[in-house]
Design a protein around this nucleic acid. Structure first.
Length: 797
DNA sequence: AGAGCGAGCGTTTTT
DNA sequence: CGCTCGCTCT
């Protein structure tokens, strides 16, 4: 090769890279680097708000369009001086077309050769939507979903290799617990010796470690009495699931990994298939999930993981931060890229977040850099009770809506435990501020919904003994506990499912006298199976509700004055089925049940609704809000009392605080109370240590003024009212306020008024502020408050 | 079989 | 405080 040609090659490669750099100029340098690094293992440490989803979406679309174009040093044969000049001149253009870049494409994969795994359906859907916006419909063929949905897809295609029935049922946490409780009863284990909760978490841990009941039993560290019991329970539990043709959530992952490990054909099939594997939220993965990622990416070795060790908040349910901390030790030749430019929050908020998280040890070490202005300092507010806390939040929201022209949807109230939501909800409900409460009992966990789903499960899988038990006498069919136990006993001795015993009850003397009742039930299921085959899914759900007598039962309950909520929920399930049918051409009952099992919450947070959102900090991960309130910033609540004993747990709490702080874009309020009623007990806790960890320059401590002596003139008793100098006449206010506010009643100083939250009081002053009126009111029981007319909802008394 | 009542207990949660 | 669970009584 002559010197001249080599020079041309270098110039060609430079021009190519420059063109890509320019095309992706909307990303920062590190993001671009992560997009272009498509070969080999890659760890991206992405701090909060550093554009992680943007990166993932663009990396996938880049791979789809150009494959290995950026890194490749292939130079087309006979590349000419003219051609390179043309490329170089393209660089001067404002816009670089995709066609131009497509010429550089090196072996771009088909969409189905890319596997992108997230933790929640929400994240998966967002990724799909954004990907579709860039690459169009081909995004649908990318394997993009949660760990569980992707594994299920593999298990379904290879159910035989995984040792599963064609129609297996998925048991949720509730189902698992029931099975465990049954097993414990059978083994005569008292809940006082060993709680079902402990057993479940141990089994779950074992499955995370890919330990079968056999492995568990063989583990020498499990030789104490308790572990022996757990070991027997694990074996028994697993046998029950197998009989019922069911898998639990952990099984979905474990069985996939074990199948891939033991079956070379299946393994090689997927290893050849997936040229690129991407895993999101890697800090929340467990051992089994890491193994899965490792095996699936072993064909091409293109495994990219993204995460933030500082946001690992799910250790309590089996996540191992070590996965991300030691990724580059475990996976050879891994590149590491850090994203530290934060586009979300103000300097004050980031400063606070950084100063808190710095107190943790064992970090990868990242420091978020602010790309926005300094912003307002964080407000730390101390109040008396949790009721005052809620009122402070509501008032602040109302104030900021007017002062800063914000929408209700801009606000989030994030708390440590769901039990805090009650006091907040009360005040919100009274104030008239629209709010949405996340958490609590989810739609698919409601009893009536689970019951109907249990019917559908039995229709789909007659072996599902647990679900059969659930509905066999719901509504009442006069099949009592004793009878059911006999069926179960027979089922165990004969080795057939409970349903098949019921089918031929007449031939078993022990239960033959109830055979008539069983037949009714069996025919009900037969009938529903026919409907499942011949009519649509929504029809099936509807007829299940009616033919089972469940609908009748609910209607009867309503006539006795019960709320219509349960009927509504059940009907909601019909619409859900109709929607599923609408969205899936070949909708099957099995697919529907699977969807329900994996898509937990239909009332998911909908950012488009203009309402304040109330939720736990855990649920807020991955979300962002212009204004965030953190109530309950007290020791023993946050950090929780249980965590302060153990350094590791305290660090997890601190990461949780970090997540909470970094949700805020513009404003952050931390509130703590002097006293708090919690589980019926009053606690008096000092402010959270996390407030203390925030450097003073980022926070404003709003220390309550030294106990203001209650001024008698504000009191109900004396009826003396201080009249402010700033008082406007009624007409002056109206004039200032204009037409838009005509529905708001106006008041003048001295008027007695009533506010729905604060009660009765006397107007001290009224002042026009733009289109609104600001009232200062001395409430008889609450002291002085300033209220905006648009939200104050005052009435004359 | 089902109502009624008292004891006990209560992080965080997605799939 | 408010829910669930299990026991007892009808």
């Amino acid at each position: 090769m002559s010197n001249e040609v080599r020079g041309l090659s270098a110039r060609y490669l430079d021009a190519k890279k420059a063109l890509f750099e320019k095309k992706y100029g909307f990303l920062n340098e590190m993001q671009r680097k992560a997009v272009f690094t498509v070969n080999g293992p890659l760890l991206v440490l992405a701090g909060a708000g550093t554009g992680k989803t943007t990166l993932l979406v663009n990396r996938i679309s880049f791979i789809l369009k150009y494959g290995n174009a950026y890194l490749s040093d292939i130079v087309p044969a006979g590349v000419s001086e003219e051609y390179i000049k043309e490329l170089e001149s393209l660089l001067q253009e404002d816009e670089i077309s995709e066609e131009t870049l497509a010429d550089f494409a090196v072996a771009p994969p088909a969409p189905w050769q890319i596997l992108a795994i997230t933790f929640t359906n929400k994240a998966a859907n967002e990724m799909k939507t954004r990907l579709t916006n860039i690459v169009g419909e081909s995004a649908n063929d990318v394997w993009c979903g949660t760990f569980h949905s992707m594994c299920l897809r593999m298990l379904r295609s290879h159910s035989k290799e995984a040792g599963l029935d064609n129609h297996f049922t998925i048991y949720d946490a509730d189902d698992s617990k029931k099975v465990i409780t049954e097993c414990m009863k059978q083994l005569n284990i008292d809940e006082k010796t060993l709680t079902a909760k402990t057993v479940i978490s141990q089994i779950s841990k074992a499955k995370d470690q890919l330990m079968t009941p056999h492995d568990f039993d063989a583990d020498i560290s499990h030789n104490d009495f308790k572990m022996q019991m757990i070991s027997s329970l694990y074996a028994m539990y697993q046998a029950r699931l197998t009989e019922a043709g069911a898998v639990d959530f952990d099984d979905i992952i474990m069985k996939t990994v074990l199948m891939l490990k033991t079956n070379a054909d299946v393994r090689e099939y997927y290893q050849k298939k997936f040229r690129y594997v991407l895993i999101d939220e890697f800090q929340d993965t467990n051992y089994a999930q890491f193994e899965l990622a490792r095996i699936l990416s072993d064909g091409y070795g293109n495994l990219m993981v993204v995460g933030d060790d500082d946001q690992s908040i799910y250790k309590f349910r089996g996540a191992t931060v070590e996965n991300i901390l030691t990724f580059d030790e475990k996976i050879k030749n891994a590149s590491v890229i850090k994203l530290e430019d934060n586009y979300r929050s103000t300097e004050a908020i980031l400063g606070a977040a950084n100063s808190v998280i710095r107190h943790n040890f064992g970090r990868r070490g990242k420091e978020l850099r602010a790309c926005r202005g300094p912003g307002e300092k964080i407000t730390v507010k101390k109040v008396e009770t949790q009721n005052d806390e809620a009122k402070f939040i509501v008032n602040k929201i109302m104030e900021l809506i007017i002062r800063e022209k914000r929408k209700y949807g801009d606000f989030a109230v994030l708390y440590r435990v769901n039990a805090q939501s009650g006091a907040l909800e009360n005040v919100f409900a009274k104030s008239g501020v629209p709010y949405r409460l996340l958490g609590g009992v989810r739609f698919f966990e409601r009893k009536e919904v689970k019951d109907i789903i249990a019917y559908l499960s039995v229709v789909s899988n007659g072996n599902d003994n647990l679900r059969l038990r659930r509905i066999i006498n719901e509504p009442k069919r006069k099949i009592g506990e004793a009878t059911i136990n006999q069926i179960e006993l027979l089922s165990e001795t004969v080795g057939k499912s409970m349903f098949s015993i019921m089918e031929s009850a007449r031939s078993y003397p022990a239960v033959s006298k109830s055979a008539g009742k069983f037949e009714m039930f069996v025919y009900l299921i037969y009938g529903l199976r026919k409907i499942a085959r011949e009519e649509g899914l929504a029809k099936l759900v509807e007829k299940t509700i009616e033919l089972s007598g469940y609908g009748e039962m609910l209607r009867a309950a309503e006539e006795n004055g019960e709320s219509t909520e349960r009927s509504e929920n059940v009907r909601e399930l019909i619409s859900y089925a109709a929607e599923y049918e609408h969205n899936n051409e070949n909708a099957t009952l099995e697919g529907f049940l699977e969807d329900i099992a994996l898509v937990a919450d239909v009332d998911n947070y909908d950012a488009s609704a203009d309402a304040v959102v109330l939720m736990t900090i855990h649920s807020a991960k991955g979300l962002e809000f212009p204004v965030v309130f953190l109530p309950g910033m007290e020791e023993d609540l946050f950090p929780s009392a249980r965590s302060v004993m153990e350094a590791e747990e305290l660090e997890e709490e601190r990461r949780l605080a970090y997540v909470a702080i970094t949700r805020a874009k513009d404003r952050l309020f931390m509130i703590h109370t002097r006293e708090r009623l919690f589980y019926g007990r009053t606690m008096y806790n000092p402010q959270s240590r996390f407030i203390g960890e925030i450097a003073a320059e980022y926070k404003n401590e709003d220390v309550p003024k030294p106990k203001e002596k209650p001024k008698t003139e504000y009191g109900e008793k004396t009826r003396k009212v201080r009249i402010s100098n700033e008082l406007f006449s009624r007409s002056a206010i109206s004039a200032n306020v204009g037409k838009a506010q005509s529905s708001v009643e106006t008041f003048r100083a001295g008027d007695r008024v009533k506010h729905i939250t604060f009660g009765v009081g006397t107007v001290l002053s009224a002042k026009a502020m733009g289109a609104d009126i600001l009232y200062e009111i001395a409430f008889d029981n609450v002291g002085t408050k300033k209220l905006m007319a648009t939200y104050a909802k005052l009435t004359k008394v």
